[in-house]
């Protein structure tokens, strides 16, 4: 048996998605307030979960390649487009900060009962349609300044992949230590109770101002 299997069937997709969605919801990444608290420095769950996942998968891929289980470059590696990748990253970061989700987390949020995630998904369809309708105008930017096909950081810096992985792990560990201090200072991270019942004063706030209670039943 050679890996990857390149199995892109229904069961393969459902199974990969099941694990993905289960991990996202379990970590609290279906909650838009927990997700956006990353950017108020109160809750670093996005950073922690993402870097842990990247390092676990990157290490696994490196081991699989070192052991000869998979051939080098046998998995898909996205190519950097200086304009497309940067502008898209900026737009998604901005949309995440005001809308509360990215595409995968909106699916997890919706499936855990959040109706705002359904509205967000409707917005995504509109945004994709706008991009497509304006594609003739956008195409030069979309295709501008491509980097080398499937280039990795190891190739960019001319070092073995394991050096990049160790460097990323060191940076993640430093980031994690800083994160824990900032979370403690800012009263985070958010627990499920915080997410479900709102911040401390939301009960009185809701009564006095007529504002709704976060995640209230409809």
């Amino acid at each position: 048996m050679t890996l990857p299997l390149y199995d892109n069937g229904i069961i393969s997709g459902l199974f990969a998605g099941l694990l993905f969605g289960y991990a996202l919801e379990s970590g609290g990444l279906g909650s838009p307030r927990k997700l956006t608290a990353q950017f108020t420095l109160k809750d670093w769950t996005v950073f922690k979960v993402m870097f842990t996942a990247v390092l676990v998968a990157a290490t696994g891929l490196w081991l699989a390649e070192a052991a000869g289980i998979i051939a080098p470059k046998s998995v898909y590696i996205p190519t950097a487009y200086m304009w497309g990748t940067s502008l898209g990253g900026l737009a998604i970061g901005a949309g995440f900060a005001i809308g509360g989700y990215c595409p995968g987390t909106s699916a997890a949020g919706f499936a855990s009962g959040r109706l705002d995630a359904a509205v967000f998904m409707g917005g995504m369809v509109i945004g994709i349609w706008i991009f497509s309708a304006a594609f003739d105008l956008l195409e030069p930017v979309y295709n501008a300044a491509p980097g080398p096909q499937g280039q990795t950081l190891a190739e960019l810096f001319g070092v073995p992949a394991i050096v990049v992985i160790v460097a990323l792990a060191v940076m993640a560990a430093i980031g994690w230590a800083v994160a824990v201090r900032l979370e403690a200072r800012n009263g985070g991270p958010l627990s499920y109770e915080d997410v479900a019942d709102g911040l401390g004063d939301s009960d009185t706030g809701a009564a006095e101002t007529g504002a709704y209670r976060p995640h209230e039943a409809v």
Binding site: M50, I92, C102, G127, I128, Y142, I165
Partner: peptide, 27 residues
């Protein structure tokens, strides 16, 4: 926010999952 993210996900050829997470794992 959804409109911005939808637009961004096309010009970036993917989103936080496909380019950020999966791309990051391939370094």
């Amino acid at each position: 926010g959804g409109i911005l993210v939808g637009f961004g996900s096309r010009i970036a050829r993917g989103c936080t999952s496909g380019v950020g997470l999966s791309g990051g794992a391939t370094l």
